[in-house]
């Protein structure tokens, strides 16, 4: 990794960590458990789609998906270095982590753009 990008990667890690910390638990509770298991009345499909069509919702979801992906890429990269002692694979691990985050972010932008 070239030196000048390190602060940017750290910033993405930090911003993504904050987004995930603040918003992921409630989304995971509602969409992962409460709605599928019927603890709470899930929103009707057309109402959900109506919300999804709003530009502000799509912007929210883009931030919601992309920043935490870069948080993962940064943190998981160092976990692999230390936890599995993969420091010698420095370049490969970094390329795989940030590459995955980049590709999934692009897919997210594409999907959100195409909601109609």
């Amino acid at each position: 990794m070239a030196r000048p990008v390190t602060p940017l990667l750290w910033l993405l890690f930090s911003a993504g960590g904050t987004v995930a910390a603040l918003l992921f638990p409630i989304h995971a509770f509602l969409f992962g458990l409460a709605f599928p298991l019927g603890w709470l009345e899930p929103p009707a499909h057309d109402a959900l789609l109506g919300l999804l069509r709003q530009p502000l919702t799509r912007l929210y979801l883009l931030v919601f998906i992309c920043l935490p992906l870069f948080h993962w890429a940064h943190r998981f990269r160092y976990t692999l270095y230390d936890g599995l002692q993969l420091k010698h694979l420095f370049g490969l691990v970094a390329a795989l982590c940030y590459g995955t985050a980049l590709v999934l972010s692009a897919v997210a932008a594409y999907v959100l753009w195409g909601v109609s």
Partner: peptide
């Protein structure tokens, strides 16, 4: 704590999957 990031990424991907099927 460091491994929580794996679930963060999984949940981001899960949300993307959900948006796709809703759309």
């Amino acid at each position: 704590r460091e491994l929580t990031s794996v679930f963060v990424a999984l949940f981001a991907a899960f949300t993307l999957w959900q948006i796709r099927s809703a759309a």
